[in-house]
Nucleic acid binder design. Sequence first.
RNA 1: GGCCCUGUCGUCUAACGGUCAGGACACUGGUCUUUCAAGCCAGCAGCACGGGUUCGACUCCCGUCAGGGCCGCCA
Length: 500
Amino acid sequence: MADTVRTRIAPSPTGDPHVGTAYVALFNYAWARKNGGQFILRIEDTDRERSSPASESMIFEALHWLGVSWDEGPDVGGPFGPYRQSERFEIYRKHAERLLAAGAAYPCFCTKERLEALREAQRKAKVAHALGYDGHCRAIAQGDGRRRREAGEPHVIRLAMPREGETVVADLLRGELRFDNTLVDDQVLIKSDGYPTYHLANVVDDHLMGITHVIRAEEWISSLPKHAQLYRAFGWGSPVFCHLPLLRNTDKSKISKRKNPVSLNYYRRAGYLPEALLNFLALQGWAIAEDREEFTLEEFIASFELSKVTLGGPVFDLGKLTWMNGKYIRRLTVPQLLERLRGDLVSDEYLLKVLTLAHERIEKLEDFVEYARFFFVGELEYDAEARAKLVAKRRTAAQTAQALDRLLEENLDQLLEWEPARIEETMRSFCDANGWKTSDLFMPVRVAVTGKAATPPLFETMEVLGKEICRRRLRRAVETLRGMKAPGGTGTHGGEDETP
RNA sequence: GGCCCUGUCGUCUAACGGUCAGGACACUGGUCUUUCAAGCCAGCAGCACGGGUUCGACUCCCGUCAGGGCCGCCA
């Protein structure tokens, strides 16, 4: 039936599964279920550079772990597939063609260089209101444009935004949102590689898939007028839009991995129960009752009211999540707790991995406990020796901090397959590129991720620990290093402690 | 800088013109307990500011300020 509520989550498989994805998915899922409708998972992998199957399957797995399921998606199929945008290439091409024919879009032959120069000039000129594409190629006659396209000239296709008036779009929570059309530039719809941008693919798919409620994050508001114009150009009615607030770091900025764990893999590995995480997430922007905040997914679905979502960006309070997780743990029976433990942290699978590394290095069975401690604890404590060795030989604490920071954010973080060989390769090439002796870098990394100077082989250890724990610990090490007193003038080798 | 969104305890939130502005996390004190947690009790702490509208504003309107988002051939 035409009025069935259909919502979707449309993650981009370009990295680790994000807590923000889970947050938005939860609200979409609940809204669909609450209304007896369908919830769809669509993979937005139109960025061919960054999308990866590894990331996609991690998203599936993380969402499954949480207990959020979808009625239609790449893995389960459905009547409106395919649900992976890379497999819908032809659909977007046809739709772009339609826009072209109607004059609602035009080919643009501007080079990257020209666009960069344009941006640069705009920045310098401080014509703040004129930022964005200048419509240069919009003047090209349709026939000329077609001929140049047919001749194979590289180009993109842009939306021809109205050049006057305003676009008014209703948001379920924010009322009418108004945008001055002259301030919205002509968005690229089809990239030069032929793939659509988010803007085109998203609108086309939401329409074709019968999405009735587009519930997404606030960061999309600024492109709303483009989407609204797209619906208009196609002659389609638009879905209900609802922009949820953004999860925040403690400093109120958009939640980010540098300041907060954001990977769902982290929460799983750190021992948060999925039902606790879900409960906590549901509380960000919504309340079930005046004096109650613990409830199950089913209860959430039953009483969820989209229009009751609050708009202040909620600071993600790890402390409160942890407290709530404790509540859930206490509620389990001991046998159930055992099951949870065996499910992940002390599964035979994990134990086997750790044991493989500890095997040759212990003399009594019980040595295992102390030796492998860091494979099980969350937060590490650095003793004096560890603190000293956290600073690289021949470098200051600040230099070491900077190196670890860059190694993590610009190199290790890009690794989707977290394997010893890849980790090693990444770290070695980092050394080459930055003039570090490998041995100088590896010790601080070792201490950062294990808290000890003597450990099993570093790369295998990092693999077993997992990317999320390593990320967390490296970040912590960077903070620790930054907190260390600067060397008093001459000394360049580390080890200096904080003021006593 | 431009456009847009937002603004209740430190944090998550309740309130939908009339309440001593409620609950939760954190924090503090007490209680229970061999200890530590958990539990229980108590305490601390907020309507960003200024104008309106109204008999009456946390609630409605305007302005200021503050915070955030976007300004990519990324989503």
